[in-house]
Design a binder for these strands. Structure first.
Length: 490
RNA sequence: GGCCCCAUCGUCUAGUGGCCUAGGACACCGCCCUCUCACGGCGGAGACACGGGUUCGAGUCCCGUUGGGGCUACCA
């Protein structure tokens, strides 16, 4: 093949979390930057842990993020199939090859026996490592185990001496003593391969030239290199990227709240923001001061030499800030399209109800756009555009309603507003400015109570924007309701 | 326990022996803009884990300690 080939190989045991997404992203960037092929492979050799639909959900997330694969499930490719559960015969075949060469052997130990052995080693304060007791079984012993009906796993014969040096593209040379590595299982007794074996066979057969994966696999790499040498198969280059940690510096897990791509999507984060943010977790662009970058921007300048070797803790606040940046960049019409599902799930209006009011919705969204952080928050904060406030902000009531004269002033406001020849933002503003003047008060004395009357809140878009979007009838009616509320107050 | 990786503001990071009285971003605080909030602008507080070396000179190189993470599985 000759060409650069890179892969991302998740195991379908859950949703795609941001750590996995980030590793996939680095793979993608590296491939596109260097003109190679990006292969997606599903590592589903653990029947117990594999979760139904997980692979499908992950692929959905990849597509949503814009990380499209050149070869893999759905799209196919010359190295099909791309799902390990469909490649069993391959693993058996090469395991047999290794056994024929005397580089692998059957191990009849039961999990219980192995556990007992480890336990003993722990008590004796020795390394809890497999002893190699089945390495040189006689034919007699083998027959005995078979007669007992024992199942066997296949172990790989690891070298007893020497060193294995990983030449990592990020960490440099990392050396491991071979004697530290015990004979490990490559085929489980259920006939399925283990990770360290399947991974090598597939990377080899799929012509993978560069293995970019999370740091946690650095210690597994010497094991895999031993298999490459035993087959023999050409060695790919390795690059171990730092892991992403939860805010408490522990490994990402479910109890840390939102962290899967799907969850972020459902909370109203944009794929562009997520991709941009996670890229910066461990990678710095050449111009480190320019942080807002599209996937295309990143492809142009991505280099492994600027990937750090330090684990990163993700910070939702910065992601959220970045999401706000992306929301602000959107054309209002596009934003509305993305927002509609969130307006629906906030129970404010249905898609059907919204359809004929598209122009109105755009106007409303424009007033809120620069305040938005996530689509979910944005939709929720637009509630007052859809229905009158159910209650008034408590502090606001004290500050703006519970003062002498407020009801009277609001009354005058409604009168002025209803007399205006036409309803526009400028006309509303002009009306308020002159009323304030003739009353000899600041505009704020009118504006703040009105905002509270219209939205129930003390913050939000400019008052005249709100009035314009609400329309004259609704505006006057809400002010009227507020006047009644104030009168009851006193 | 053994082996391996990692260590700059709260977080993400710049920094590859003198340009560092350590720069940027998020968050935080103050001021400005202003009808509020937000946006935006300006300013502030805030870090080289510790201890030894090497060197004229160390955040940058070496060693140790401490701390965090990973592997040591018939998980990946």
């Amino acid at each position: 093949m000759g060409d650069l080939r890179v892969r991302f190989a998740p195991s379908p045991t859950g949703y795609l979390h941001i750590g996995g997404a980030r590793t996939a992203l680095f793979n993608y960037l590296y491939t596109k930057r260097n003109g190679g092929k990006f292969v997606l492979r599903i590592e589903d050799t653990d029947v117990e842990r594999t979760i139904e639909d997980s692979a499908e959900k992950m692929m959905e997330s990849f597509k949503w993020l814009g990380l499209n694969w050149d070869e893999g499930p759905i799209v196919g490719g010359p190295a099909s199939p791309y799902q390990q559960s469909q490649r069993q015969d391959l693993y058996s075949k090469y395991a047999q090859t290794l056994m024929d060469k005397g580089l692998a052997y059957r191990c009849y130990c039961t999990p219980e026996e192995l556990e007992a052995e480890r336990e003993q080693a722990r008590l004796a304060k020795k390394a809890p490592r497999y002893s190699g007791r089945c390495r040189n079984l006689t034919q007699e012993q083998t027959r005995e185990f078979e007669n007992e009906g024992r199942k066997y796993a296949i172990r790989f014969v690891t070298p007893d001496q020497g060193n294995t040096v990983v030449n990592d593209l990020i960490h440099g040379e990392v050396s491991f003593q071979n004697e530290e590595i015990a004979d490990f299982i490559i085929m489980k007794s259920d006939g399925l391969p283990t990770y360290n074996f399947a991974c090598v066979i597939d990377d080899w057969l799929m012509g993978i030239t560069h293995v970019l994966r999370a740091d946690e696999h650095l210690s597994n790499t010497p094991r895999q290199m031993m298999i490459y040498r035993a087959l023999p198969a050409p060695m790919p280059k390795f690059a171990h990227v730092p892991m992403i940690l939860a805010p408490d510096r522990s490994k990402l897990s479910k109890r840390h709240g939102a962290q899967t791509v799907e969850e972020f999507r459902d909370k109203g984060y944009l794929p562009e923001a997520i991709v941009n943010y996670i890229a910066l977790l461990g990678w710095t662009p050449p111009d480190a001061t320019r942080e807002i970058m599209s996937l295309e921007d990143m492809v142009e300048v991505f280099e492994l030499s600027r990937v750090s070797s330090t684990a990163a803790v993700y910070d939702v606040q910065k992601l959220t800030w970045m999401n706000g940046q992306y929301i602000r960049q959107l054309e209002p019409e596009e934003l509305v399209q993305k927002l509609i599902p969130f307006i629906e799930s906030a129970g404010l209006a249905t898609r059907e109800e919204l359809a004929p009011r598209k122009d109105w919705l755009i106007q409303a969204v424009i007033t809120m756009q620069e305040r938005a952080r996530t689509l979910e928050d944005l939709a929720e904060s637009m509630e007052f555009y859809f229905r009158p406030p159910g209650s008034y902000d408590e502090k606001g009531v004290k500050k703006h309603f519970a003062k002498p004269n407020v009801a009277g002033l609001l009354q005058k406001c409604t009168e002025v507003l209803s007399r205006m020849p036409d309803w526009s933002l400028e006309a509303c503003e002009h009306a308020y400015t002159s009323l304030a003047q003739s009353e000899g008060i600041g505009r704020g004395k009118l504006i703040h109570p009105t905002r509270l009357a219209l939205s129930g809140k003390t913050f939000g878009p400019g008052l005249f924007d709100i009035m314009y979007v609400l329309g004259r009838d609704e505006t006057i009616s809400r002010i009227g309701a507020a006047i009644q509320f104030i009168n009851k107050l006193l």
